[in-house]
Design a protein around this nucleic acid. Structure first.
Lengths: 336, 336
DNA sequence: AGACCGGGTGTGACCGCTAACAGGAGGCCC
DNA sequence: GGGCCTCCTGTTAGCGGTCACACCCGGTCT
């Protein structure tokens, strides 16, 4: 019914050249006479010709697609990263195919990676913030370019990561600088490297300041968990400063403190992590740590592209430093 | 260096059959002897054979990929929709390729669609909530399956949409039922259909209740805008009920009201839209309207698949009703 | 017994592109 | 003027699948 899409030969016929010349024009090959190039381009425009990437992928063995393996792309962090990745990839002429994964276990990850490999993607970016992902990754074919984001720092794979520890250190130090004797930490899920890094940074800052290290308050990433932890924290009169592993956790904490009549920042100071766009509108505006997702995306892609283009070279590890964003949720501790 | 990936012929040779038989096994063709099927499957497993989708796409003319055109996938709504879409597509054996667009103008959209067409995607889902997108879409090749989500209700294209008006009506009615004389509305950007639908629903509810219709308070989707509008609203003693076009707007309003000493819900009631996961932890917990992104994704995909599989049939329009989630940000108006 | 049928399998063409090579035209050298 | 190098262009062979078709074989029908 529908007429066949025009192919290279159709363009070639119309321009009075061979299909190979059309191919050369399309790929920017140098040795084409200017006049010929123009004729070909005219023919392309006239026919509305659109190169068939599938055919190209077949013969070259690689499609111009980057496969992403991610989990819960609804969360602000992953979503931002994904968007930045897509943006950056597009600039280099790559499309992005997402493969979300419910659980980051071995089976699920392998399944998604398999799907990407079946499409002969040019490379894979794994946003694999948990332990179990690493195991899955080791078993993967070695010949496909791969970059992990926020993955296991102790595994020998190309890795781009936000410097969680540095961010946490900055947050903790900021609180310490305000005069607090110590800082409590509501952490993310224990199997995420992000959590581990933030915990580590928090501990380091306390240790090097000679401050006492309070027990860790474990949570997940949700405001609900933050609320629960906040209720507990609110009942402890000693607590004057809290650093939460992300902004939503902080939101929950803020609400719990509010309900218990503990004022922020007058009675208790709070610092979050992520700088979600609405953090500036919490009550009070939240001091937080902002990771640069754009930089992470650029670094990942660059790392992937060097792997794709050549066999060797390129850094295998890149760390992006986040910045502290000071707002009104931090103040000196109350005097007693 | 790296050995060529095994192809169908390799499997065929090992299993002692022809490549065509391997193909039949792979595609679940009925007429294959059980014993042969097993031999082939064993060979596939032994070689770690993985069908090449690019080759398949080339010969069939369509790849098993669905292209998505979206904007700002960082926002909660689009991100959730995208995730749900990906999930649903995977269940039907489709991969999802995202194409984000900075602006939803004609050129940007066409560019992304072109990219998808070059990959010979099986279908396209356009999350195109603004006017200018519709224009771009009309100029598209007619022979590629396409579904728009939250698009222009007045354009004759397959459309799946959240029933914005119904949600807004429910929100407004809920406020009216609590005893408020009227309800103010802080709306989303004027070029989004989502905004238009919510405004419409809000107006309808007021009209049919015989309530006065206050002037519209226009904003965008951000907490920052909500804050600005909230400051204005806070100064108007008559305002007792506000319905905002999304939860982040509500967050900004909440904060502004708080700063002006106007209590929620005692002095003013607020209702949002989206039910972001953290809405339950706003101060106070936010009453809001929850769209069912999963249902939208399922409907879109189903609509797309019927177009892909056959020429005719299937609904061209599907509307998903959202539900009101009552929390603590609504109360009767203060008595004076 | 021969025609017919249908399940199971193989053969060859082709999808649209790129890579490798072949070759013609023109300029420059000796 | 022949050899040679440089530009430009065409020819041919696949890449790894699917599709249309031919074929073989045993059973059933006439």
């Amino acid at each position: 019914m529908a007429v066949r899409d025009p192919a290279m030969t159709d363009v070639a016929r119309l321009a009075g050249v061979s299909h190979q010349t059309v191919s050369r024009v399309l790929n920017g090959h140098p040795n084409v006479r200017e006049q010929t190039r123009l004729r070909v381009q005219a023919a392309i425009a006239e026919l509305g010709y659109r190169p068939n990437r599938a055919a190209r992928a077949l013969v070259t063995g690689r499609s111009q697609v980057i496969g992403v393996v991610a989990q819960n792309t609804t969360l602000y962090g992953p979503a931002s990263l994904l968007a930045a990745l897509e943006q950056t990839a597009a600039e280099s002429g790559f499309a992005v195919s997402v493969g979300s994964v419910r659980d980051l276990d071995h089976r699920s990850i392998s399944a998604v990676v398999e799907r990407h490999l079946a499409h002969r993607v040019a490379g894979i970016v794994v946003i694999a913030p948990v332990e179990s992902a690493g195991e899955a990754l080791e078993r993967l074919p070695k010949d496909v370019p791969l970059v992990t984001v926020d993955g296991d720092p102790h595994r020998p794979m190309p890795l781009v990561t936000v410097d969680q520890a540095a961010g946490a250190r900055a947050a903790t130090q900021h609180l310490l600088d305000a005069g607090h004797r110590t800082v409590w930490h509501v952490s993310g899920p224990s199997d995420w490297f992000d959590s581990a890094g933030r915990i580590e940074g928090w501990r380091e800052a306390l240790t090097s300041a000679g401050a006492e290290i309070p027990p860790l308050v474990p949570a997940d990433w949700s405001a609900a968990a933050g609320y629960r932890c906040g209720q507990m924290l609110a009942r402890m009169p000693d607590v004057t400063a809290v650093f939460t592993a992300n902004d939503h956790l902080a939101l929950g904490v803020l609400r719990a403190l509010h309900e218990h009549g503990r004022r922020v920042p007058d009675d208790i100071s709070v610092v979050g992590f992520d700088d979600v766009p609405e953090a500036a509108y919490f009550i009070p505006p939240l001091t937080t740590v902002r990771p640069d997702f754009g930089a992470v995306a650029r670094a990942s892609l660059e790392m992937l592209l060097t792997q794709i283009e050549s066999v060797s070279g390129g850094a295998l590890r890149e760390t992006i430093a986040p910045t502290l964003v000071a707002r009104r949720s931090v103040a000196p501790p109350p005097r007693r």
